[in-house]
Write a protein that binds this DNA or RNA. Sequence first.
DNA 1: CCCAATTTGTTCGTATGTATA
DNA 2: TTATACATACGAACAAATTGG
Lengths: 260, 260
Amino acid sequence: MPRMRSVGLQLEAIAPGGSGMPLYRAVKRALLAALESGRVAPGQALPAEKRLAALLGVSIGTLRHAVDELVAEHLLVRRHGRGTFVATHDSTRFLFQFFHVERRDGRRELPRVELLAFGRELADDETAEALHVAPGSAVYAVENRLSLQGRAVVFDRLWIPCALFRGLSEKRWRERPATIYHFYQAEYGITVVRAHERAQAVAADRPSARVLGLAVGTPVMRVRRTALGFGERPIEYRISTIHTAVHDYVHMLSRPARAG
Amino acid sequence: MPRMRSVGLQLEAIAPGGSGMPLYRAVKRALLAALESGRVAPGQALPAEKRLAALLGVSIGTLRHAVDELVAEHLLVRRHGRGTFVATHDSTRFLFQFFHVERRDGRRELPRVELLAFGRELADDETAEALHVAPGSAVYAVENRLSLQGRAVVFDRLWIPCALFRGLSEKRWRERPATIYHFYQAEYGITVVRAHERAQAVAADRPSARVLGLAVGTPVMRVRRTALGFGERPIEYRISTIHTAVHDYVHMLSRPARAG
DNA sequence: CCCAATTTGTTCGTATGTATA
DNA sequence: TTATACATACGAACAAATTGG
């Protein structure tokens, strides 16, 4: 039987009462640091709770408290009887955490993605501000068309700092097997932790209209997303143009933790 | 036969191992039932944890597990040294959980609300389906204009079932002191627990254009919201038309529980 | 201002149940 | 079956925040 291999975390025992911070929060920070540094890779199992608690020199309850919060933030995933794993971006669960377009009738489906353009650019002011880089910094720029049910629905333009993605090429980008965020994570160890989006309604400009097969001036949604990694570090800036004739942009508020 | 103790909240001791359900979940359901029935009113404090645990016949750890989940779902609020309270809709924290329009520069402000229309209608098919009532059922229909910085930004039309809001009148509605959801909660004991929204970009129709002071055909966002109470019961259906020239519709994904 | 009572927050440890390999 | 891992449940003790005297 293949054994799940847990990882040498290079964790040190937490100093109790060291900083006025609750112990479980210090534990959380230690785990967060291990995740951020990549000492535990996405998909890998953490040491068992009992062992991890011993390694850190805290009780199992304290460890669980810290892990609970990381699970709530989608950074770890617990599997009963198996272990606790570093969350990955490959599951559909995670995909749909960041993909908000669905059919009017509520059914979700995976979009077909076409790469329209890939290149290097110098960041304009808007992109630079979003990515917290200097204006004029080198960025990779990507354009995608997303189709649902054979219909072009989303025109994505996204920018990522070249400094974060050394050695990226169109070939590598094109040959990624799964989602973009999974690619960032698997190939560059860069995990998108959360994001914020700002949406407007605008008249389709000429490029968007062409890509989506619309008349110029058709109302479309324009969504500006900044994707953040650990420590609120900007990873990607994306402008999505969405044709909402047949599909909706959806937003859930206050989902219950589990069924009541 | 489990011993049944009746108390202030009319909570009964939970039967251990009664239903294959974890004990903390049974506790959660008991608390949920107390909230839903209004036996504990919004803003009121629950009995202290120690006492509540004793009342329910469970350990304090088990009680806290249940309360933790209700806090995560924004139904309860803990205050260190003071108690655990039934969440209300009057704090700005809760207001902004359901109000997603803000200035381009990210600053939030409270909207000025003007009541444009109030009346009784028969639910059309769309409203009826959203509210889970029969088409043609009696509903109250309300129209509001929301302004930010003196600018008309949102045109809200909302429908609520007459059956849920007995004795509602334009006078009562107009004289409510605070937010709409606070009004539902304080006056009718109806708590909005969560909501989902579906957004599109459309050309402003004549009524929206008039209310928002726009040219007909200007691209605007149209957001359809269904607000749900306990047990997923629909409470309100709302169609918001938003002018996004100066303001954005914002959407946060995966906010961290607290500062890491 | 300090003290005492009350209440939630944190930490510990143990035992047992349940899912997985 | 057996071993491992997470899930649930218990309860004790002390810390920290709040309130009122």
